[in-house]
Design a protein around this nucleic acid. Structure first.
Lengths: 212, 212
DNA sequence: TTGCCCATGTAATTTGTTACATGATTTA
DNA sequence: TAAATCATGTAACAAATTACATGGGCAA
């Protein structure tokens, strides 16, 4: 009852980030913290923020304490510093499977800095708004291309079908972000062009022709 | 040099959440922490997560310490408990305008729980994947509708044009989320139907006809 | 007149980041 | 042989949540 591992095992559930790390391990490979960080940078990154090194290390400790992962030191052949590698346990597989199947579907968390800036449009010059949007557009397109490239390089075995599918989702998501920025550039241009002509409330910004 | 207010005023910049709260105040009204929370729930919420009460209270303290906001107690008419209301200062306006204009455009932070689950598709039954997607779809549609409703009810003055514009962006964003979920449902169906027929690598899931 | 929600906060805890420490290996 | 980089962590700090405390008004 006062056993810590038991406390974690039953009862209180882990935070999503722990499940994300355990999820990385659930593909079956034995990995070090460093490996996990690198892998998470090119996979989770597209739809889930990639935790820092230090957090990955502490999540690994927590998972091991909970009995969901086990670790061992491996001595390097060529004299490199020894490292600790982690592998998921059977209990870990059971737990992460259970989480994936049964956890409630809660809404995505979005912190969209560029939109926060535009929401404060009354503080900006039109040119500055455009600059924010253009940079965001470039970011989105860069991410989209990365998702495409990663999907092309992805392993083709059946086990990897779902990671590949989410890359496809990411491709579309970032394409949409890019297009949404373009649409907003249009909207701002329309707003600007319609300004000065007496703020008539009838001039509702519907869907005017693309350009003035 | 050792003055705390000065430390905050120049030099080290505030976290984005502080700017978000100061941004709420930048529309000029005198508001309590409670008011700010409620307002943030129906505005920031669409593109930036809405901070908890306690965080709003501590951000307000920080802003006041930095000289960006001032507060006063107001006694309630009908004997309700007194409350503290905050108003942005001139320095605050200068600072938030400067932030909005000059801060680097950094990428949005996304923590997409549903996608994390699907990325772990090897742990799920197809039916469970569909369930996750359907629920996400419903959430997205609910948010979209809310954005539309809020935009309809929004104040029409020029100062509110940009908040209204971001609501329009939100409407499109959540429409896209909804559609992306639908597309992924199709992809999963295609993957399932193509399974068992020898994992031929040629069976690339392109854009097959909507239904089998 | 008890229970519940509005409103206002503070305290304790958890989550996550940045800065630092260490040492070996590769590259310039 | 100095600098950059890989690899592994720890420590200090910041951000954010949950739980708790308090009191008034209102509905049952």
């Amino acid at each position: 009852m006062t056993n810590e591992a038991a406390d974690e095992t039953n009862g209180r559930t882990l935070p999503a980030t722990s499940w994300a790390v355990l999820g990385l391990l659930s593909f079956g490979e034995e990995l070090s913290g460093y490996d996990l960080k690198k892998w998470s940078d090119w996979s989770l990154r597209f739809f889930y923020w990639s935790p820092s090194f230090s957090q990955i290390y502490s999540e690994l400790k927590r998972l091991e304490k909970a009995g969901y992962a086990s670790s061992r030191m491996v001595a390097q052949e060529t004299g490199t510093r020894d490292k600790r590698v982690y592998r998921i346990t059977d209990e870990g597989m059971t737990a992460v499977r259970r989480w994936a199947r049964e956890a409630p579907v809660d809404p995505p968390v979005l912190k969209h800095g560029p939109m926060l800036r535009l929401w404060l449009g009354h503080l900006l010059e039109p040119e500055q708004m455009r600059e924010v949007l253009v940079q965001h557009q470039e970011f989105a397109e860069k991410m989209r291309r990365r998702a495409v490239a990663d999907a092309d390089g992805a392993r083709k075995e059946a086990a990897w079908a779902y990671p590949t599918l989410t890359l496809k989702w990411a491709e579309r998501y970032y394409a949409s972000e890019r297009d949404l920025a373009a649409a907003m550039l249009d909207d701002i241009a329309a707003l600007e062009s319609g300004r000065g002509a007496a703020g008539s409330p009838g001039a509702a910004p519907g869907k005017p022709g693309k350009r003035p």
